[in-house]
C-alpha cells in the first residue's frame, strides 16, 4: 500500500489528509514507529487515530493525558483487593512464603490500564495518547520504554513484551515543549489548519448534501475568520457545526440575513471576547468577501 492509497482510504472514511500527513502516517505504519502530531486545537489530530482504527478494523485505545497522570492510571495497577483475599485464602490453605508471593504478584492480579492493554492485544490496536503536553515531564519518561522497546517493566513481575506492535499516535498542542528524548522516539508531523481546497473537500465529505455556493461561502468565511485576532481560532469541527447550523436554518446565502449569521456565530466563537471582537459589521464584511 502506498501513501496515496492510504490517503484515498482515509478519505473514504471521511478524513481528508494533507500529503505530508498521509506520508507521515504511511511511514509510521510501515516502520512501526510512533507518530507525534502537533498542531493547534481543532485541526483534526485526534480524529486521525479514530479514522485509522476504523480503517484497519481494530480497537482504538485512548489515553487522555492530564497533569499528575501516573503509572497506576496509565500503565498498570495491582488488584489489591484480590491480592488480600488470595493471601488470606492461601494462609488458610496452608501455603505460605515464597509460593504466596509468587502467586499474588502474577499477571492474574494485574489490572491493565490503557498502555498495558494496548501492548497485550493480539491484533495490533491503535493507541492514542492524547494531549501529551498536558502531562508532566515525569510521565514523558514513563513513555520512553513503551515507545521505543514496546515493553513494560513491572518490578515484581519482570518485563512484559508487546504481543503485537500497536500503531501509536501522540498528539500535542504545542503549549509546552516536549523533551528531546520523547521527540526522538517518534516520527513527527505538523498539522496545520487546512487550506481552502482541503477544507472544501472536508466539508463535502462530511456534509455531502451542501450546496456548492453555500459551502464555498462557509469555507471562505471561516478561513478569513481565522485571520482575525481571536483568542480561540475556530477549528474544523467548529466549521462543520457552523455549516450544520446554517443548513438546519435553511440559509442559502451567508449575506442574506445578518441577524441569523450573528446568531450562528456561536458555533464558531467560543469566548466572550471573541464574540465582542467580531461585531455584526465585521461578520458582514467577512461574509461579503467570502460571497
Amino acid at each position: 500500500m502506498s501513501w496515496q492509497d492510504l490517503q484515498l482510504s482515509m478519505s473514504d472514511q471521511g478524513y481528508v489528509a494533507g500529503d505530508d500527513l498521509a506520508m507521515a502516517l504511511h511511514i509510521a505504519l510501515s516502520l512501526g514507529r510512533p507518530l507525534l502530531l502537533e498542531g493547534a486545537a481543532g485541526v483534526g489530530k485526534t480524529e486521525v487515530a479514530r479514522v485509522l482504527a476504523d480503517m484497519r478494523g481494530t480497537n482504538l485505545i485512548r489515553l487522555q493525558c492530564y497533569e499528575g497522570l501516573d503509572a497506576s492510571h496509565a500503565i498498570y495497577e495491582w488488584n489489591y483487593q484480590r491480592q488480600l483475599l488470595a493471601i488470606r485464602a492461601s494462609a488458610e490453605g496452608g501455603t505460605t512464603g515464597r509460593a504466596v508471593e509468587d502467586r499474588i504478584f502474577s499477571e492474574e492480579f494485574l489490572l491493565e490500564r490503557p498502555l498495558l492493554q494496548a501492548l497485550r492485544k493480539d491484533t495490533p490496536p491503535v493507541l492514542l495518547i492524547d494531549e501529551i503536553d498536558r502531562a508532566d515531564e515525569e510521565f514523558e519518561a514513563y513513555l520512553l520504554e513503551i515507545l521505543s522497546e514496546f515493553q513494560i517493566t513491572v518490578p515484581e513481575l519482570g518485563t512484559i513484551k508487546a504481543r503485537s506492535i500497536p500503531m501509536v499516535i501522540l498528539t500535542a498542542n504545542g503549549t509546552r515543549d516536549l523533551s528531546d528524548a520523547l521527540r526522538r522516539r517518534c516520527l513527527y508531523a505538523h498539522v496545520d489548519y487546512p487550506d481552502r481546497e482541503t477544507e472544501m473537500a472536508i466539508l463535502r465529505a462530511r456534509c455531502p448534501e451542501i450546496e456548492t455556493q453555500l459551502g464555498q461561502q462557509i469555507v471562505g468565511f471561516v478561513q478569513s475568520l481565522r485571520g482575525e485576532e481571536l483568542e480561540k481560532t475556530p477549528g474544523i469541527a467548529e466549521m462543520l457545526d457552523f455549516a450544520a447550523a446554517l443548513m438546519g436554518l435553511g440559509i442559502a446565502d451567508l449575506t442574506e440575513n445578518p441577524a441569523v449569521l450573528q446568531a450562528t456565530l456561536t458555533t464558531l466563537l467560543k469566548t466572550r471576547t471573541d464574540r465582542d471582537n467580531i461585531a455584526p459589521e465585521v461578520a458582514q464584511r467577512l461574509a461579503g468577501q467570502a460571497a
Binding site: D19, D20, I27, E38
Partner: peptide, 23 residues
Amino acid sequence: THIDAARPDDARRALKCVCTGSA
C-alpha cells in the same frame, strides 16, 4: 525503502517526518 524514493517529493515528505521534531 517503503516509498518510491526516486520521486523527490515523496522522498522529501518521508524524510520530513523522520528528521523534523518541531514546527
